[in-house]
Each structure stands twice: as structure tokens, then as C-alpha cells.
């Protein structure tokens, strides 16, 4: 991205209140905005700066701050640069606006985030389950969901001790560490 375009972009984005722009490298720009200013920002980026490709929407669960961070990565085929727009929304009730009317790829990412984090996107075309159709537990990517604890609570470990393994152990080989210690090795501290 040339200096000229970078300047032009900075001037353009200054129109939005409460915006913080950080240039991370020649092709990467990080923008932090208040949640209610994001649609205006994306509209500006798409309509006037050529950022027509929504590369991804990422969600990060900051459980200690009681917040979700949503990151919209948009790419410009003209200036060959990527703007990552960061917003924070409250963890409860976890509702935000869909950007589907600006970027059609948002439908997949919003559906995915809804499924994995339980955030509802108002106006998104499809909030049905896609990957976890058989799942009725809590949204699994939330930090408070401990997958290992869930497994211990709902499933039972199967004892696997076939004759060939017993023979191997009797000869002094095979599995030496008991299975429970192998599985929970990270709990020892």
C-alpha cells in the first residue's frame, strides 16, 4: 500500500467518531471502533475505499471482561491491504447486527459464530445450526465451556485391555503409564 493511499484512508476514516487506527505493517491496518459505528465504517470502507472482500469475521471470548470481540477482516483488491475492524460487544445478551446486506460472505461467519458462541446477529439470513446439528449443550467455543469436564460428566471412558496388550505388559512392554495419568497430564500442576 503506497503512502498516498494510506494517508487517504486515514483521512477517510477520521470521519468516524471514536475511531482508533493502528498501522501494523504496510498491508495491515487495525481499526478499533465502538460497536454502533461498525456498519458505517464498513460501508465507508466498501463504498469509498474498495474493501469489497470480507475475508473473515472472527470472534474472541474475553470472559474476564464480560465481552465478545468481533473482528471484521476486509481486503481491498485495489490497494492490496487488509483492514481488521475490532469491536467489543457485551457478553450478555450477546446480540449484534448482521452485515449481510454489505457483505454476503458474512452469512456463513455469522451463522458459525452464532453456533459456536451463541451470539445472535439481527438480520442475518440464516441462524440455523450447521455443524453442530446434534448438539444441545451450551455453545462450545465459549471459554466457560470445559470440553474435558463435559466429557467426564456425560461419557464414560472405556477400559481397553485386550489380551494382546496384557501379554505385552506382562513382558515388560506396552503402556506403562496408567491411562488416567496420560490423559490428565496437564492437570498435575
Amino acid at each position: 500500500m503506497s503512502q498516498e493511499i494510506a494517508h487517504w484512508l486515514d483521512n477517510l476514516l477520521e470521519e468516524i467518531e471514536g475511531i482508533e487506527i493502528r498501522r501494523k505493517s504496510s498491508r495491515r491496518v487495525r481499526v478499533d471502533v465502538p460497536a454502533d459505528a461498525l456498519p458505517a465504517l464498513l460501508e465507508l470502507l466498501q463504498g469509498r475505499a474498495g474493501y469489497i472482500h470480507l475475508s473473515a469475521i472472527s470472534c474472541v471470548d474475553w470472559i474476564e471482561d464480560e465481552e465478545f470481540e468481533l473482528v471484521y477482516h476486509v481486503w481491498s483488491y485495489e490497494s492490496h491491504s487488509l483492514v481488521s475492524a475490532h469491536i467489543r460487544i457485551a457478553r450478555e445478551p450477546g446480540v449484534y447486527l448482521s452485515v449481510y446486506d454489505l457483505y454476503q460472505p458474512a452469512a456463513f461467519f455469522e451463522r458459525d459464530i452464532h453456533e459456536m458462541y451463541g451470539i445472535h446477529f439481527e438480520g442475518s439470513p440464516n441462524m440455523d445450526k450447521f455443524i453442530l446439528t446434534e448438539w444441545d449443550g451450551p455453545p462450545p467455543m465459549r471459554k466457560e465451556f470445559d470440553s474435558e469436564a463435559y466429557i467426564n460428566e456425560h461419557l464414560s471412558w472405556q477400559a481397553y485391555n485386550p489380551p494382546w496388550l496384557q501379554a505385552l505388559i506382562a513382558e515388560g512392554g506396552g503402556v506403562v503409564i496408567p491411562p488416567e495419568e496420560q490423559r490428565f497430564s496437564r492437570k498435575k500442576d
Binding site: M116, F130, I131, L132, T133, P140, M141, S147
Partner: peptide, 13 residues
């Protein structure tokens, strides 16, 4: 309608 999830192994988690 696409129907995925058959290969979900929870890599991100």
C-alpha cells in the same frame, strides 16, 4: 442446502 459437520473435530477448541 449445504449440510456440514460430518468432519467436525473441534480443532479451534
Amino acid at each position: 442446502k449445504a449440510d456440514g459437520g460430518y468432519l467436525h473435530r473441534g480443532f479451534e477448541k
